[in-house]
């Protein structure tokens, strides 16, 4: 099993973990699953780093570990635990089964799209690339299909992980500072989202995105 195959396999694992994040009942549970997923991502970085002999990816992995496996899940778990909205229920627009199906379709579509790409950098890692893209879109689907705004935050995080992976796959050679900037952004984004969600919950006593439709027209 070559290094790249490991990368591809681990990437597949990402989809599974993200499904867990989406279908989890409680936000705090989702946060744990997200930590798990980020761990997988770190593993992918390491594997990729060794496979392509790109030492800077180890730095990436380290940074990702600190921020995504530790920092963000902790923040989320701590703040989300306090937020609740009884009326919301699960907040799903579609059932978990359909979500799984959706994930499958997205992966399939992305594989199709990526198969057409003729980028030299993407030669050996097409499956991983497809999955990273699928991951991104799956996160987007999460934002669209989940009414719970906390789940929407997770959706954003999934998207972010997907694009992060893409970045690593395609632009692994980019300077580290870039990666740090992106990660910082992600962390700040999550922080601000959490603060906003908290404020919304406090002010409007809801976590339902469908309640946030007073501004229209």
């Amino acid at each position: 099993m070559s290094g790249l195959q490991i990368v591809n396999g681990l990437a597949g694992l990402l989809i599974v973990t993200s499904l867990l994040v989406v279908v989890a009942r409680k936000p705090s549970q989702s946060a744990k699953f997200y930590a798990l997923q980020s761990l997988v991502l770190v593993a992918v970085f390491v594997a990729l780093g060794s496979a392509t002999n790109a030492p800077q990816l180890y730095v990436w992995a380290a940074v990702a570990f600190v921020t995504k496996v530790v920092l963000v899940p902790v923040i989320m778990a701590r703040s989300f635990g306090r937020l609740s909205d009884e009326r919301l229920g699960s907040g799903e627009r579609i059932s978990p089964a359909v979500t799984v199906l959706l994930a499958a379709v997205v992966v399939l579509l992305c594989t199709l799209i990526i198969s057409g790409v003729t980028l030299p950098a993407a030669a050996g890692i097409k499956p991983a690339l497809a999955i990273s893209l699928a991951h991104f879109f799956f996160g987007l689907a999460c934002i669209v299909t989940q009414r719970n705004i906390l789940k929407q935050v997770f959706g954003y995080c999934l998207m972010e992980n997907g694009s992060h992976l893409t970045l690593a796959l395609l632009a692994g050679s980019a300077p580290e500072l870039v990666e740090i900037g992106i990660t910082t952004d992600a962390v700040f984004a999550v922080v601000i989202m959490v603060i906003l969600a908290t404020q919304i919950n406090r002010k409007l006593a809801t976590l339902d995105a469908d309640q946030l439709t007073t501004l229209k027209g």
């Binding site: 705004i149 984004a189 601000i192 989202m193 906003l196 969600a197 404020q199 919304i200 002010k203 409007l204 946030l212 439709t213 007073t214 501004l215």
Partner: peptide, 8 residues
Amino acid sequence: LEAAWKYL
């Protein structure tokens, strides 16, 4: 807050 959320 709603506007900020959507914006974000």
